[in-house]
């Protein structure tokens, strides 16, 4: 059985969620030319057309850019730790893309191997991801080169397909089924209708990218590739799958919090030792790290590429770098 929902009813549904006090995130137009996933203050703010994908990702729902881990109070020579983990309200990502949702499935692994990160897990548990299959792609999209596609299900709790002015709705997980109830069907959407206009061509072979990164670790290629790199974190921070973080203390002499903030392997300070030694002493090594981590290290350890082909790194790079240009060069042997 497949089910349909009209655009109006989809907005009504969002309005109902909001009225019920749920936190709903979706693509919004912040200003002309800038779409971001953001908390919706009304169902009307939800953007349904006219864009490829937001400049950020939904990872922020499960891994916020800034999160307090605990508080502390200092009383003379004693310290008291304060639990700051507030209740996480139910949150819904509506209109996420398959390349966003798939990243959550990858993040689940690193946050749960051996040590379980409950900050991540409790947000993940509170989050339902309703993905919108892509209706279009641009020349930065490359999901098909990393084993995904415009209708990929991985990480999604439900999937919407735009059909004839409305959406076909399909629940994928129990969470999706519970949230959508009778609105959702169970059968796969007929892929015959896939026009292909939404499917980016395969631009490289990720196994070849991995092989190059492994075999050419010390290759001058990396330094040359990275010459234009400015060493900012625009690529990693807008990546749905990058998850490196820093831990900092903020407060005064009496009390404060220990918090984690997103961090980026592209910053020179990221690996700098207190002694002054820096294992990744140049931007080439830092660019290599980003590719190596995504295409070699993560797959070796967790069985999947840590890149979902969203293209955000290139779209957000002020100087035209990112995964795609490099992978196209080294992954087309």
């Amino acid at each position: 059985m497949s089910a349909r929902i009209s655009r109006e009813d989809l907005r009504k549904l969002v309005a109902e969620w909001l009225a019920a006090g749920k936190k709903v995130f979706g693509p919004v137009r912040v200003k002309a030319g800038l779409e971001l996933y953001a908390p919706l203050d009304s169902a009307e703010a939800l953007l349904l057309d006219g864009w490829i994908r937001p400049a950020n990702s939904i990872k922020e729902l499960v891994f916020p850019r800034h999160e307090a881990l605990y508080g502390y109070r200092i009383l003379k020579n004693r310290v008291e730790l304060v639990d700051l983990a507030a209740e996480i309200p139910e949150q819904i990502a509506i209109g996420a893309h398959p390349c966003d949702a798939a990243a959550l499935a990858a993040l689940d692994k690193v946050f749960n191997w051996d040590y379980r990160d409950e900050f991540y897990n409790r947000r993940r548990a509170a989050t339902t991801v309703i993905t919108m299959a892509c209706a279009a792609h641009d020349d930065q999209c490359f999901c098909t080169s990393v084993g995904l596609g415009p209708e990929a299900e991985r990480g999604s709790d439900a999937l919407l397909h735009e059909r004839d002015g409305g959406y076909e709705v399909r629940a994928i997980s129990e969470k999706g089924r519970i949230l959508l109830g009778g609105l959702a069907g169970e059968t796969a959407c007929p892929t015959a209708q896939t026009s292909g206009a939404n499917t980016p061509p395969r631009r490289f072979d990720s196994a070849q990218v991995a092989a190059f990164a492994k075999e050419h670790f010390e290759d001058p290629y990396w330094a040359e590739r990275a010459l234009a790199c400015l060493g900012c974190g625009a690529c990693t921070f807008t990546c749905p799958a990058c998850h490196c973080f820093d831990m900092v203390d903020e407060g005064n002499g009496r009390e404060g919090v220990r918090a984690r903030n997103w961090d980026a392997c592209q910053f020179p300070m990221f690996t700098l030792h207190a002694s002054g030694h820096n294992p990744r002493a140049n931007q080439g090594a830092r660019q290599r790290q980003r590719i190596y981590h995504k295409f070699v290290m993560y797959p070796d350890k967790f069985g999947e590429v840590l890149c979902t082909g969203c293209g955000n790194c290139s779209r957000n790079c002020p100087v035209g770098l990112g995964v795609l240009p490099a992978a196209t060069e080294i992954g087309n042997g």
Binding site: R65, L230, G231, G233, F237, W262, F267
Partner: peptide
């Protein structure tokens, strides 16, 4: 509130 502290502004 949208700032990610990616420091692209500084680096560029």
């Amino acid at each position: 509130d949208r700032c990610l502290k990616c420091y692209a502004c500084r680096q560029v």
